[in-house]
Simulated assay, not measured.
Amino acid sequence: MQKLQVQGVHHITLTGADRQTSIDFWQGTLGMPFVFEQPNLDTPGENHLYFDPGDGRLITVFTHEARKPDPSPTPRGAGNLHHLAFNVSAATFAQAVERLAARGITHSGVRDRGFMDSIYFRDPLGLLIELACYRFEPPAGFSHADVLREAHLIRVARNAHAIAPPHLADAIERLVARRHGAGAEDDTAN
Rank of each mutant, 00 (worst) to 15 (best):
D24R: 09
Q7T: 15
A157Y: 08
M116Q: 09
L41S: 13
N87I: 04
L148D: 01
M32I: 01
N47D: 14
V61A: 07
T29S: 07
I23Q: 01
G56I: 10
A85Y: 06
G77H: 07
P138E: 04
K3T: 08
P124H: 04
T15C: 09
A90G: 09
T43L: 13
H167D: 07
E65A: 12
P44N: 07
E137K: 12
V147Y: 03
H144S: 09
A157I: 10
F136N: 02
L4I: 12
N159F: 11
R178W: 10
P165I: 00
M32P: 01
Y50L: 11
D112E: 13
F36I: 08
P44L: 13
I129D: 00
A164N: 02
S108E: 00
A157G: 09
S108L: 06
I59Q: 00
N80F: 10
A90W: 04
V88A: 03
E130S: 07
R135P: 01
D24P: 00
A91V: 10
I163P: 01
H144I: 09
L128E: 15
A17H: 03
V147G: 06
L125R: 08
P53G: 10
A94Q: 09
E130A: 08
R103T: 06
R57V: 11
Q38S: 14
I12R: 02
N47W: 11
A132R: 07
T74L: 15
R76A: 12
Y120E: 06
E130Y: 10
I154Y: 05
F34C: 06
T13E: 14
A96T: 09
G45Q: 09
R178Q: 15
G77T: 08
H167L: 01
A182H: 14
T74M: 12
H82A: 13
R19T: 11
T74Q: 13
N87K: 12
V35A: 14
P124M: 03
A160Q: 11
T13H: 06
N47Q: 15
L4H: 07
P39F: 10
H161C: 11
D187K: 10
H11E: 08
T13S: 15
L81W: 01
A169S: 10
V110G: 02
N47V: 09
A162L: 12
F142Y: 15
E46Q: 15
A169I: 11
F121H: 05
Q7K: 14
S22D: 03
N47F: 08
T63R: 05
N47A: 13
L128S: 12
W26S: 00
V176C: 07
Q7S: 13
E173A: 13
A132W: 01
L4P: 02
R57A: 13
